[in-house]
Simulated assay, not measured.
Amino acid sequence: MKKFLAWFLSIVIVLLVFGGGCFALAKYNTNSLAHSYYQKLTGKPVRSSKKLEIAYKVPVTMQKDKAASKVDSALKTNNLVGSTAIIRKGQLTYLTATGRSHYPGGSKNTNTTKYQIGSAQDLITAASVMKLSQQKKLKLSDKLSKYYPKISGAKQITVKNLLNMTSGLSITATPPATDSFPTLLSWNERNVQNSGQTGSYDYQAVNYVLLAGIVQIASDQPYREFIQTQVIDKLDLKNTGFVLNSTKRDKLATSYEDSYSGGKVAVTGMAKVQSTKLGPYQMYMSTLDLATTYLYILSGKFIKSTNVEKLIGSSKPSFVGGVYSGKNYFTVHGQLGGYQDSVQIDAGKQNGVVLLTNYVPTGIKSTQTAPIIYNTVFK
């Protein structure tokens, strides 16, 4: 009996040691297959236990922006709510918040309020692709067939076409309501259509869904984990993450429909709205975190300055690398179920406006919000 107990205890100890080792491998070795399964089971990327040096902090001036009162007036005049950041000469000069994150009598928006950022995530995805290109893990000239050979016409479409929305790909079917990026990625691959108009601009979310998938393939790690380790952790962003479920969604400012009907009506079915662009359109941020991330990318610290120009530089108005670029400035604008992102930054990447909102009054387009403030401050 004693021999049996000793043998049994030895087996238990071995199993505990082995199990603990497997768990550590799954949790912390991000290059292991076990880690991929761990992430699927837990639904979240894992932060490394090793403390990382912060790669970039947006410079903050000690003096309030000289146009601060004009910004306040413009926000009030145009009934704009949300959180607004002013960047002047590469420094954060003003950060303000208006309106409420919950109506009618709920909490007010603040400088740390979190919003879903919608298509403002395009630049983050595009810069991630460029970073992998910089690391020789992919080429912008790579054919889509290298990653998704089953897609019609994939041999004529390049990664650069996807970045600039000139692939000719689109989806007309309604995607499933899911919080699983692998499920949605597979669905996009099966349902994507090719118009044969490769080279012609057409904004279609499927381009950046596929790019998120390419980031996964080239980096050998899930898209969310890549963004977590390469951007969120390195910038120590406190009010940034991925909206994976209703618990996460409840921590954001509630999004409201455009209405002057006597009260703001909350958008319903956000889980379904979000799932249509799951993956590259799933992040939430505060305005400061978004401004910090953009300046990190534009500063040449995330990717080389030459590659920033290669990604978004353009002498004529066009969509390139996740932004609408022109000779004098570039803009970002989009809407996602009542949330709106609006950014305008000058070509020199020194002056700009970043605005995130959970309610946009009727008559104000997503292409107008940041430009209204930008023109007030810099014209």
Rank of each mutant, 00 (worst) to 15 (best):
M165V: 07
S167N: 07
S167G: 04
G168I: 04
L169D: 00
L169N: 01
S170H: 15
I171L: 14
T174M: 10
P176M: 09
P176W: 12
P176D: 11
T178H: 13
D179V: 07
D179F: 02
D179M: 02
P182V: 00
T183Q: 08
L184F: 12
L185T: 04
W187D: 10
N188F: 04
E189L: 13
E189N: 14
R190V: 14
N191I: 07
Q193R: 14
N194F: 10
N194Q: 07
S195Q: 15
G196N: 11
G196I: 04
T198M: 04
G199Y: 12
G199E: 06
S200C: 07
Y201T: 00
D202N: 12
Q204M: 01
A205D: 13
A205W: 06
V206T: 08
N207P: 10
N207H: 06
Y208I: 07
Y208S: 12
L211I: 11
A212C: 02
Q216R: 13
I217Q: 15
I217D: 15
A218I: 05
S219W: 05
P222G: 00
Y223T: 00
F226A: 03
F226T: 08
F226D: 03
I227Y: 00
I227F: 00
T229Q: 15
Q230I: 00
V231F: 08
I232K: 04
L237W: 10
L237P: 07
K238Y: 14
T240H: 04
T240C: 03
G241K: 01
F242C: 03
V243R: 10
L244M: 15
N245D: 02
N245K: 03
N245V: 00
T247V: 03
T247M: 03
K251Y: 05
T254M: 12
T254R: 06
Y256W: 12
Y256E: 08
S259A: 14
Y260L: 14
S261M: 13
G262S: 11
G262C: 06
G263I: 08
K264Q: 11
K264L: 10
V265T: 05
V265P: 00
V267P: 00
T268D: 15
T268E: 13
G269I: 06
G269D: 08
G269C: 08
A271Q: 15
Q274L: 12
Q274P: 05
T276S: 13
K277C: 08
K277E: 15
K277M: 13
L278M: 13
P280T: 02
Y284I: 00
S286L: 01
L290T: 05
L290W: 06
L290M: 11
L290D: 03
A291Q: 06
T292V: 07
